[in-house]
């Protein structure tokens, strides 16, 4: 909910921009994930990278269509921890997917258009499915989350 409780196109657009920022970060981060994995283990990295690039491009088009300036990608990002092993790489991918999940849930909270919520809930589910695989690869338990993207 907006801080003043009112939802409108402005709150929705602001939340869309936050999702785009998270997707930029995910695209960048998947490069670091792939670099820490052997070539024969990169299939889920490619799939995740492609998915995030696709949705990034959809968000840019959506923001363009409503006359809102898309958020540019940052010049660089700071890794939350050193990524030196396959387990580190999987843990980073979990961070990336959980980051975009939080942004999608924020959008669900702020959106006014059903079509935007439809996009958000679909992509939130896709991010959680990827996160399940990465949590397993990182040795996390449980591998699932009851409420992906919601504040804990």
């Amino acid at each position: 909910m907006a801080d003043d409780g009112v939802l409108d196109e402005g709150t929705e657009t602001a939340a869309l921009r936050e999702v785009l920022a998270a997707e930029h970060a995910a695209v960048w981060g998947y490069g670091a994930v792939g670099a820490a994995l052997p070539p024969d283990a990169r299939e889920p990295v490619v799939a995740g990278d492609v998915a995030h690039r696709d949705v990034r491009d959809r968000l840019v088009a959506l923001l363009d269509a409503r006359g809102a300036e898309p958020v540019p990608r940052e010049a660089g990002y700071t890794l939350p921890f050193p990524v030196l092993s396959p387990v580190d790489a999987a843990a980073l991918a979990v961070v990336l997917e959980e980051g975009v999940s939080a942004a999608w849930v924020r959008l669900l909270d702020q959106a006014t258009e059903p079509s935007v919520r439809e996009l958000a809930v679909e992509e939130l589910g896709a991010a959680e499915v990827r996160a399940v695989g990465w949590r397993a690869a990182a040795g996390r338990t449980p591998v699932t989350s009851a409420f992906p993207g919601l504040p804990r």
């Binding site: 939802l7 924020r106 669900l108 909270d109 959680e128 993207g149």
Partner: peptide, 19 residues
């Protein structure tokens, strides 16, 4: 609002269960 966010999170959580 918050109801959409809660339902979306639960739906996503179950998609994770499905996986």
């Amino acid at each position: 609002g918050a109801r959409a966010a809660l339902l979306g999170a639960v739906a996503a959580g179950l998609r994770g269960h499905e996986a």
